[in-house]
């Protein structure tokens, strides 16, 4: 086992064990069945015990792996992938995942609070998230385009313009379709 995976395994398994203990505590006081032999508690309890047992096996394996390998070793496949990525100039953006989740949470939160209507919130959310994922260059080029009216900026600014069009069409288009055609009660603000 790869030591880096072993470390991840330890974290995940400890988390799962804690969740299972919470399940056991919550289900412990459930009354036994009156009309049938099992009752409501034993099935979730049995599953939680099985999960804890399996997690302990993975934990043990991960600990043994970490004890045997001091430094993480990379497989041939990993090395090949890294070489390919380096050759293509591609870099992973782990923080994008966190940002996407945070943006999504904020989007749902604002919708939940009902501060603005669905169309407005969705348009703003889409614009933010698309521009964030596109990176800074198109935004800078777009700002240059609207301030200098220089056509030379158009190719670089095009993705930002597409982002604006998509955001508006999707934001208000979805609001119209889902409220008028599918009769979904989207938040109105």
């Amino acid at each position: 086992m790869d030591p880096s995976i072993a470390k991840r395994d330890i974290g995940l398994m400890l988390f799962i064990i804690a969740a299972c203990i919470a399940v056991l505590v919550e289900s412990w006081d459930l009354p036994p069945g009156t009309f049938e032999p099992l009752g409501s508690g034993p099935v979730p309890q049995a599953i939680a015990f099985v999960i804890i047992g399996l997690c302990l096996i993975i934990l043990l394996r991960a600990l043994i792996t970490l004890a045997r390998h001091a430094a993480p070793t990379k497989t041939e496949e990993q090395l090949a992938l890294e070489a390919e990525a380096a050759a293509s100039g591609f870099h992973a953006r782990p923080w994008s995942a966190v940002a996407v989740l945070a943006f999504s949470g904020l989007y749902v939160g604002i919708l939940y609070l009902g501060l603005f209507g669905f169309g407005v919130v969705t348009t703003v959310f889409l614009l933010f998230i698309i521009l964030f994922l596109l990176g800074a260059a198109p935004v800078r080029a777009f700002l240059s385009l609207i301030t200098s009216f220089d056509r030379a900026h158009w190719p670089a600014a095009k993705p930002a313009v597409i982002a604006i069009v998509i955001s508006v069409v999707m934001g208000f288009g979805c609001e119209f379709i889902f409220t008028e055609v599918f009769y979904v009660d989207l938040p109105t603000g």
């Binding site: 799962i16 299972c20 399940v23 919550e26 289900s27 459930l30 009354p31 069945g33 009156t34 009309f35 049938e36 099992l38 009752g39 409501s40 508690g41 099935v43 979730p44 599953i47 939680a48 099985v50 999960i51 399996l54 997690c55 096996i57 993975i58």
Partner: peptide
């Protein structure tokens, strides 16, 4: 395989909250 089993059991556990269909008892 063990991770597969953990995954399956976790899925089972997440289906448990709510009203127990046999007894109408709230759980988890």
């Amino acid at each position: 395989m063990i991770k597969g089993l953990i995954s399956g059991c976790l899925g089972m556990l997440f289906a448990m909250p709510g009203m127990d269909p046999s007894l109408g008892q709230m759980r988890l």
